[in-house]
Nucleic acid binder design. Structure first.
Lengths: 161, 161
DNA sequence: ATATCTGCAAATCGTTTGCATTCGG
DNA sequence: CCGAATGCAAACGATTTGCAGATAT
């Protein structure tokens, strides 16, 4: 999904809700679309300053929240304390693998896992609205640098939560 | 796993590492074992004060971190901003479903999902050390109170992350 | 016109840290 | 003894908020 389309959709979204189409909001949408990586609010706020724009940090946070509500961005908790964001407009749902060595984030989609989740929810009478699946470990290149890992020995004490 | 055993194991763990067995540490372990629910650091700190113990909030945080490192507790991010903890000593790994209505946390374990995760990691040359799978939605009783949900219509804009 | 947005700075909130003191081994 | 652990209060870092002035419709 290109910026143009995203911009148009965001404007439509705002108008539908009686919200205003403002310069700061559009600037933030464009900056969010200026990368294909995951980014944090502070990072985007950095891009704002690089442009010597007067848009404030508070507005960055407020607009990111709006973009998440509207289904333009999805938040991703990488456990570093700050939230990361990624565009989802026009992208199919996927889950993540986070490398504990270099912080790299890999994306994957597994249909069987998706279905099993729905099955589990159904079995428990749980009405599913979303899910978060994050695999933690070491990517190929980081694993190579940590010999102890290669034989398949787990290093962290506990598995997932 | 009862408190007694947990206490003994924690003492052993501390000694092995040349760390000291102190009153605050043992008190915190016991309080952590005084519930079968998920609890937050602040909550445990509340139990400390109820006992009019002199153990400080800082020590609560420091000891919880120690218990996580040692594989006694597992942290669970419920997206409320604070971390929750649960004992895992003697408990098999499981994942969670969090009810957005009442905050209740249901646990489940699905072998097929576990295996598929390992398979996905393997396919990507990723060395898996852990994972987080959290289903979000509404538990049976909360779903009943929200008629719109029953027909299977999704309400939140986006699915998972 | 006028309700919504914005920028600013101060406030939150969970968690962490520096440091002088206390305590376990 | 002596280094590790604690309590205290101050520091932190990401995010949120109150408010007066600016702006979109």
């Amino acid at each position: 999904m290109n910026v143009e389309t995203a911009r148009r959709r965001f404007e439509a979204y705002l108008r539908e809700r009686g919200l205003r189409v403002t310069r700061p909001r559009m600037e933030i949408l464009e900056l969010a679309w200026s990368t294909h990586r995951h980014f944090s609010a502070e990072e985007l706020w950095g891009w704002v300053r690089e442009r010597s724009s007067t848009t404030s940090r508070a507005t960055v946070y407020r607009t990111l929240a709006l973009l998440v509500e509207g289904g333009f961005l999805a938040p991703l908790d990488d456990r570093s304390g700050q939230m990361l964001y990624e565009h989802i407009l026009g992208h199919s749902h996927h889950d993540h693998m986070i490398c504990l060595g270099c912080g790299r984030i890999l994306e994957f989609r597994n249909e069987a896992i998706e279905e099993l989740q729905e099955e589990v929810a159904r079995e428990h009478g749980f009405h599913l609205t979303g899910h978060t699946l994050t695999l933690e470990g070491y990517c190929r290149s980081c694993a190579r640098r940590r010999p102890g890992l290669l034989e398949g020995g787990r290093e962290e004490a506990a598995g997932g939560s």
